[in-house]
Computed example of a mutant assay.
Amino acid sequence: MNFDKLFESKPIQMLQELGGKMQSNKVFSSISGGMMGTMNLILAGAVFSIISMLLNISGILETTDPVYQWLQLPYNMTMGVVGLAASFGVAYSYTKNLEMKGEVANGFVSMFLFMMVCAPVQQVTLADGSTKSMLDTSFLGGSGMFTAMI
């Protein structure tokens, strides 16, 4: 198949026009810019995940090995807060696209509002019978990404 003909076909040209219109929209370009800002965080965690998986596949480490768990920690930490970073990035990018001042302040406000919605304080009973107030971090990662964009 000739790829030049594929890229010159009518459906691909229509998709390119649609993509161009979406990128010129301030909201869509803000979401795109905010999500691109999270790429460093995602790549940092992915490097450790790849290293630990390669060591596991080659038989050097088992998943129960403490070194394997240590290598997975950066991945879990970065992917566990990617929604939080996205909420900051999208708000920052949107403020910049609207040519307003206070990009960083709006990013932090968005991040704190995201935490209020997606990480409510919960009372947890510990093994010794005492209770502690803790944040539920279940939705700060990829599972809360759509909420972060809103």
Score class of each variant (00 low, 15 high):
113 L>K: 11
9 S>H: 11
65 D>M: 10
84 L>W: 04
27 V>T: 12
96 K>G: 05
92 Y>N: 14
60 I>K: 06
109 V>R: 12
149 M>W: 01
62 E>W: 03
5 K>L: 13
128 D>I: 11
129 G>P: 12
39 M>W: 10
53 M>D: 10
52 S>A: 14
50 I>A: 15
119 A>C: 04
117 V>S: 01
100 M>E: 11
41 L>A: 14
138 S>Q: 04
11 P>G: 05
32 S>V: 06
108 F>S: 03
3 F>H: 11
146 F>C: 07
83 G>R: 05
30 S>F: 00
30 S>A: 15
114 F>G: 00
107 G>E: 02
135 L>C: 09
31 I>A: 04
20 G>S: 14
49 S>I: 04
45 G>T: 07
19 G>H: 15
102 G>N: 02
11 P>N: 12
129 G>Y: 14
107 G>L: 03
27 V>L: 14
24 S>M: 08
24 S>P: 03
31 I>H: 00
72 Q>H: 03
32 S>P: 13
44 A>R: 10
50 I>W: 07
55 L>F: 07
19 G>S: 15
22 M>S: 14
64 T>Q: 11
132 K>Y: 08
125 T>V: 12
80 G>I: 02
108 F>K: 02
145 M>R: 02
140 L>Y: 02
135 L>K: 11
47 V>N: 12
8 E>K: 07
90 V>H: 04
128 D>A: 06
71 L>W: 01
102 G>I: 03
89 G>R: 01
120 P>C: 04
85 A>Y: 12
96 K>R: 09
130 S>W: 14
20 G>V: 11
54 L>W: 06
8 E>Y: 04
65 D>K: 05
46 A>K: 13
20 G>M: 09
109 V>H: 05
132 K>F: 08
143 S>F: 01
150 I>G: 14
56 N>L: 08
132 K>R: 11
122 Q>P: 05
131 T>C: 09
96 K>S: 10
26 K>R: 13
45 G>S: 05
123 Q>A: 09
122 Q>L: 08
51 I>S: 05
108 F>M: 05
7 F>M: 07
86 A>H: 02
144 G>H: 09
149 M>K: 01
72 Q>Y: 09
87 S>G: 06
150 I>Y: 04
88 F>L: 14
114 F>Y: 12
115 M>L: 07
76 N>T: 10
6 L>F: 13
32 S>I: 05
69 Q>F: 04
98 L>E: 10
33 G>V: 00
68 Y>W: 13
6 L>Q: 13
130 S>C: 04
69 Q>H: 02
46 A>P: 07
88 F>C: 09
36 M>Q: 06
143 S>M: 03
102 G>R: 00
17 E>H: 07
105 A>G: 06
14 M>L: 15
145 M>G: 06
114 F>V: 02
35 M>P: 07
66 P>I: 00
126 L>R: 03
81 V>L: 09
110 S>N: 11
5 K>V: 12
67 V>N: 01
121 V>F: 09
44 A>W: 13
91 A>I: 00
89 G>F: 01
76 N>A: 04
143 S>L: 02
116 M>G: 06
106 N>M: 13
115 M>G: 02
23 Q>P: 07
102 G>A: 02
22 M>R: 15
89 G>W: 01
60 I>D: 01
5 K>D: 13
47 V>K: 07
50 I>K: 09
118 C>F: 02
65 D>L: 10
9 S>Q: 09
102 G>F: 06
89 G>A: 02
1 M>A: 14
111 M>S: 07
10 K>Y: 12
122 Q>A: 10
25 N>W: 11
133 S>K: 14
67 V>A: 04
